[in-house]
Structures are given as C-alpha cells and as structure tokens.
Amino acid sequence: MTGRVSFRISKRFIRVWQRNLTVYQKTWKISFIPPLLEPLFYILAFGVGLGVLVGKIHYNNIEVSYVGFIAPALIAITIMYNAFFENTFASFVRMYYQKTFDAIMATPLSVEEIITGEIIWGATKSLIAASIMLGIMSLFGLITYPVGLLIIPLAFLGGVAFGSVGMFFTGMVPSIEIFNLPIFLFITPMFLFSGTFFPVENLPAWAQGLSLLFPLTHLVKLTRAFGLGFTSIELLWSVLYLLTFSLIFFPLALFVMHRRLIK
C-alpha cells in the first residue's frame, strides 16, 4: 500500500463481497421483507387510492394505468436506495465503528479491493431487491416479459452507480449524521423529480433539463421501458449515462477512501 491510490484491483475483492454475503445469509429473512411488502403498499395506495383520480397515462403511444406507470419506477427507486444506503450508512458503520476495514487491511487485500468489494456488494443488494419486486409486480400483471427481465442486469449497473456515489460520500463525511445532507439534497429531489410519479415532460423546460442530470431519471426511463416491454436505440443513451456516472464516481470513491484510511 503506497501513498497513492492504486487501480490495480485483483479478484480478491470478492472476499469482501463474500464476507457481506455471509452476514446477509443470517439476516436474509428480514432483508427480504421490504422489497416484498413495499410494492404491495404502493399498489394499494396509488392503484386503489390515487390512481382513480389520475386515470390513464399516455406512454409511448399506449395508455397505461397509473399503477402500471409507477410500478417500474418503484423498482428504480429500490435499486437506488439499496446500493446507496448500503454504501453510506452500512459501509460507514463497518469502516468507522466496527473497524472491519482495518482488520481486513492487515490481510493481503488492499483498501481499493475492500472498497470495490463493498460497492459490488451494494449492487448485489440492489439486484436481489429489484428481482423480488419484479416477482411481486408480475403477480399483478404489471411487467411485460421477456423484455422485463432486462431490469435484473440493469439493477446491477444502477447499483454500481448509486453505490459508487454513496461510497464517495462515505469517504468524505466526518460523521454519520452528515449523510442527511446528500440524502436531502440529492436522493430526495431525485425520488420526486426523476419521472418517478409523473412524467418528466410535465415539468417546466428548465426543470426537465435539470432532471436529465439525475442518474435516477435515466434509471427510471430504462426500468419503465423494460417493464412495459419497450426497447429502443435511444435508451442506450441512458445506459451510457449510468456507465459514465459509474466510471466517474467509482475511481473517486477509491480515491477518497484511500485518502481517508491510509495515513
């Protein structure tokens, strides 16, 4: 471990992923509950309650029910939450309170491999949660197959994007309370204004432009298209956006964590 961050990451990072999986295997029953129940709550609230007021929504020359419109967006939100919270609060606890990273750093693994393992784990949690939700929503006929299956690999990519930016904050925040800041300024606006609960087109032009900067806007665009059974070349731009976002924040996360842990 030298003074500078190293991007030579060996496959040893998988050991950190395995460590988190081992812990997860003990508590999976609890971890499975939110993605199982959350879609049911939303379908009840928005489908039965709000949906009646909203009526049908035009999407890509078809008409969809309001529940059908928001269902894929809920998966996108779950993808965001799982990776982001895993690589902020949970990673911070492991790093700062449990000193788990310190213990692993004394083994052949490098800091960069530990952080990579953590981010890949966050993405894995996104994938697991998205798959469960997909299953539940399918029971209500809200997902069109086989295109809908693309949401599974997409969940992993989205997980890497949101996990990397989460880990970047973890490398920066002085204490765990400060996470409220990126949640309030970054996560909450995205939750509301990324075309999740209403089409982005309903926003004024300037806000539409702004929302295109949000990674969640692109993730929602993709999950909605796939969930409703559409594919198009145009969607590649959104995939490209998520890839670029990951390629920026993943190295940044490694950099700030190296700076934080190696003194």
């Binding site: 000193k99 310190d102 213990a103 004394a106």
Partner: peptide, 11 residues
C-alpha cells in the same frame, strides 16, 4: 493484532 479489538461483530 491491532490495538483495538476489531473482531467482526456481525459474525
């Protein structure tokens, strides 16, 4: 064997 007992509390 570091100064703090950094055992894995999750295991």
């Amino acid at each position: 064997c570091q100064q703090e007992n950094n055992l894995d509390p999750d295991l």
